[in-house]
Design a protein around this nucleic acid. Structure first.
Lengths: 144, 144
DNA sequence: TAAATAGTGGACAAAATTATCCAATATAAA
DNA sequence: TTTATATTGGATAATTTTGTCCACTATTTA
């Protein structure tokens, strides 16, 4: 479905969001431990999220990663997925054809369109904030 | 969504099915040209489909790949996907957690479950035969 | 201003996926 | 039975994705 990088990206975002709700900045190490991911690789992913203005990163002592509490509910899963995996999930053909649309559809174009549209809607309506709140309550998990 | 191998596998199956409806066996070369895929790689994929009893393969002159017309509507997309990509699509966690279920769910477990179940249902109800018939009619395309 | 800390960016390495090549095998037809 | 044809299977290569390492920059604190 998503690349491993994107999976780490979503998990990291949920963790950073949750900690931000508690007014805590987190270090790369914190993130990697919380989501059980390779630290150096996670660093690259956080860089992308930072450049896409999804998370903040501050250097130096007392630095770390964070998200603005006030903007947290505006951040949807779709932004994270787009920042890391681009738009292949939405626009790419399910059978890998370069040109595939209603005019010249692949054999499963219509069947896939239904699924994709649902996936898209889900990603666009699910905010990181609600995921962070459930995680904070101990209802969901980011490792194992 | 699927691996490239799986995409080729589905496209190849639709082509082979369509040709089988016309009582024609097709060679590896035919398949590769019809679906615009690397022949040698496609060969490996057809081997898997053959071992999973989804397609027939006959060696020697007049040999080639084919599908039994009588069993064609029993072959669903789900069999092909399973033969090539396994069951990660259904059972794997959307965020890559090794253990993720209703008891210990990842943050997007429930949201993904809805999508997955729809995808699963779609794959399990879509037969290669109907896809082949639409392709035969010129309604759908396997290349470009 | 010096030292310690934390993220950045570039080069590099490992693993997985995708793709190629070719000798071997099976089979139909001459 | 020989020849031509078509798939098979194993080795190998290229590419992409995933993951690591390390010197550098920015920033806070003493």
């Amino acid at each position: 479905m998503f690349s491993k990088a994107c999976e780490y990206g979503i998990r990291a975002s949920v963790f950073i969001a949750e900690q931000s709700l508690l007014d805590r900045k987190v270090s790369l190490k914190d993130v990697a431990e919380a989501i059980e991911s390779p630290a150096a690789y996670t660093s690259k992913i956080l860089q992308r999220l930072s450049k896409s203005n999804i998370i903040n990163s501050d250097k130096g002592p007392t630095g770390g990663f964070s998200m603005d509490k006030s903007e947290l509910e505006k951040v949807k899963l779709s932004s994270i997925v787009y920042a890391i995996d681009g738009d292949n999930i939405y626009n790419g053909c399910g059978l890998g054809l370069k040109k595939c649309n209603a005019d010249k559809p692949c054999p499963v174009h219509n069947q896939f369109k239904v699924i994709r549209d649902e996936l898209k809607k889900m990603l666009e309506t699910t905010s990181v904030k609600t995921l962070a709140i459930d995680f904070e309550k101990g209802l969901t998990f980011l490792r194992r």
